[in-house]
Simulated assay, not measured.
Amino acid sequence: PEGPLRQKALGLNGALMSSGFTTGAILGGVLTDLLSWRWAFFINVPVAIAVLLIAPRVIKESRPDERPKLDVPGAVSVTLGLLAVIFGLTQAGEKGWGSASALLSLAAGVVLLLVFYAVERKVSRPLVPLGMLGRRSVAWGNFAGLIAFLTFTSLVFPLTLYLQEVLGFSALAAGLSFGVLGVGTVLGGVTASKVIGRIGTKRTLLVGGLLQTVFTAALVGLGSDRSWLWLMLVASFLGGVGNMLAIVGFMVTATSGHADHEQGLATGLATMTQQVGITMGTPIMSAVATAAMVGTGASAVLGGLKVAIAVNAAIVLFGVLASALFLRNERSAAH
């Protein structure tokens, strides 16, 4: 049920998700430095096996009374469309935005996503219910969530390059540096429900987005020697707090005010938004940073990274402004 307990649960979910993401970054650095980068992929195998063995014992089975028909055309078209867009962004980073492979892939992705939209309008059990997307809280709540996931998770890419290519850190030291970011996101997750209770969901989302914007923009001031490490640590910590406030605000906004039978659809849509944002963020930042690099060496890398970080901050600010304009100011109700 909606209310403080649900908000607390969503906050804890966000905190756990962020701690997992951060643990992955740290563990990846440890494995790469001490063993090999291949272990960063292999480590997923025993983890997946453990989940398969433990999950059936700790999670109760639940099935709907009527098994819904799978929207195969929708699933295929949206998957291929997103893959084409991501491949096009990757090609833009490697070969330039004007390259044929980048433009053709991006165009194909747009066409496939339009096909997906057409399919969803006609099928009886759509993968993405367009009627639900017509609700302001769902549409703009998910838009805010897309921006939050796209921007902050993708910051790991330029900051990793900064630590290793500019400051000369090892993979282990770079991975450990992201622990501060993780602490910030966990703090934001566990305090989000209290913040929502005090100022409401929309204001929490906006405050979180503004915090993320300010401290992402602060990273543009990073210098080329290790004396600037403090700025990265402070900005990533406070930006992480803001990002998690925005994420929990998005989850509460996008999944509240629906009938019981629509809760699964709303939550599934929010989860899809998370995954799309995480998937697209790094290719976009990579393409921007690569296109902005002029020359070679650490100074060229730093210049490209600063442009990518500035674009990142601008995207967050755009999301904040859109949320301020189009989301209703609904204060969380006390129960």
Rank of each mutant, 00 (worst) to 15 (best):
A15E: 10
R226K: 06
V123N: 05
F152A: 06
A310Y: 02
L302I: 04
A313I: 09
M285Y: 11
R135D: 11
V58N: 06
S77Y: 05
A310P: 09
T290E: 12
G179C: 06
G11T: 08
A139C: 11
R135K: 13
M232L: 11
L5I: 10
L265D: 13
N329H: 10
V301Q: 06
L302G: 01
F152G: 00
V166M: 03
G257C: 03
P56D: 13
L206K: 03
I147C: 11
E61Y: 12
G168Q: 01
I59M: 15
E262R: 09
G188V: 02
I43K: 06
G134N: 09
A40Q: 05
F326S: 14
P64F: 07
G281K: 05
V111H: 01
V190S: 05
G3M: 06
V110I: 15
K8W: 10
G200D: 05
L161Q: 15
T253N: 00
G131Q: 10
A50K: 03
V110L: 14
S62F: 06
G74D: 07
L103Q: 10
R57I: 08
A173E: 13
A218Q: 05
A314H: 06
S77H: 02
N243G: 08
G268T: 09
P56N: 14
R6L: 13
V195E: 00
R63D: 02
L150E: 04
D225Q: 04
S286A: 15
L113M: 13
M280T: 13
E165M: 12
A144T: 13
L317N: 08
T213W: 10
D65L: 07
G209A: 11
R38Q: 14
